[in-house]
Amino acid sequence: MTFDQDLVNQGLTLTAIGIGTAFGILIVMMLLIQLMGWLVRIPARRAARARMAADAAAAESRDKALAAVAAVSALMKSAGPLESDAAVPAKAGTRKGAEG
């Protein structure tokens, strides 16, 4: 097994350039694909953020509404029974039955 020096040099050059180019191209492709994925998903990320913000706003307004309902209920309880409640005893019975 004897190697001609020129052949060795040519072989080494081919190997270095071949492996280097294959890896270099695949690494650049990997980075470009990652960048592409990141860019392409920007609108989706924005939409998700907007949806989360909308959900948060809806939750906040729902909390406010609940707080208002609670406040009104508490006020009504402290003010005593309404005249209309006394006027419809049958309905109150039904409600009690339903709760039981």
Binding site: I19, A22, L26, I27
Partner: peptide
């Protein structure tokens, strides 16, 4: 895309 690198390493057999 990381799996692209594995395709590069497998070219070892060629050389």
């Amino acid at each position: 895309p990381r799996t692209l690198l594995l395709g590069g390493a497998a070219q070892l057999g060629i050389f």
